[in-house]
């Protein structure tokens, strides 16, 4: 197993949060992990992204050139990173914020709208994570839900609850039939 994941969006969409959560939880079962939050020149202009590499073998280069999974949350990130999707890769695109062409490799999900209906548009990142994890079950869903409270100890219980429901909505979105654009 060698999964190269890139999560991107605008600052405040929580892309680093879910990247770090994913890396932390994966560390319990997956031997080799590298998480790299972009900093410096890469994050200027209000965009934010992080790379997560999960592997059963030693990770040589800690940076990927192509990605097996892209989670993109705004238009700028979609434009910038879609060319880096591997030909067999999977892109989860936040349809609420991005226009994207139909492609078999794309899952379009109105993540921000779903999260907004649940009570907080900022939980869109967890919708995205749920959608992706349903397609690529690299860590158990229960692990993610259980970790919500421990991983974000400063978050108020109401927010944790919304995050969990957003994550479940993402899982359900993926399992509720063919929703590809």
């Amino acid at each position: 197993m060698h999964e190269r994941i890139l999560i991107a969006g605008s600052g405040g969409q929580g892309v680093i949060s879910i990247g770090k959560l994913l890396a932390r939880l994966a560390a319990e079962t997956i031997q080799h992990i590298t998480f790299f939050p972009a900093y410096g020149a890469e994050v200027r202009g209000g965009t934010s992204n992080c790379q997560v590499i999960l592997s059963s073998n030693e990770i040589a280069a800690p940076i990927a050139e192509k990605f097996d999974s892209l989670l993109v949350m705004n238009q700028q990130s979609t434009d910038h990173f879609m060319p880096l999707l591997d030909k067999n890769g999977l892109a989860v695109i936040n349809q609420s914020m991005c226009k994207a062409h139909a492609d078999d490799r794309h899952v379009l999900v109105p993540a921000t709208e779903i999260a907004d209906r649940l009570g907080n548009a900022k939980a869109a990142n967890f919708v995205m994570l749920g959608v992706w994890l349903a397609r690529k079950p690299l860590i158990p869903n229960r692990t993610v839900e259980n970790a919500m409270a421990t991983h974000f100890p400063d978050a108020p219980p109401a927010l944790i609850d919304i995050n969990i429901r957003a994550f479940r909505a993402g899982l359900d979105f993926s399992s509720s039939g063919d929703r590809k654009a």
Binding site: Q31, T34, F35, Y39, I63
Partner: peptide, 10 residues
């Protein structure tokens, strides 16, 4: 370097 300093690994 900045890469080694900033990345997270087990």
């Amino acid at each position: 370097d900045g890469r080694v300093g900033q990345m997270m690994e087990p």
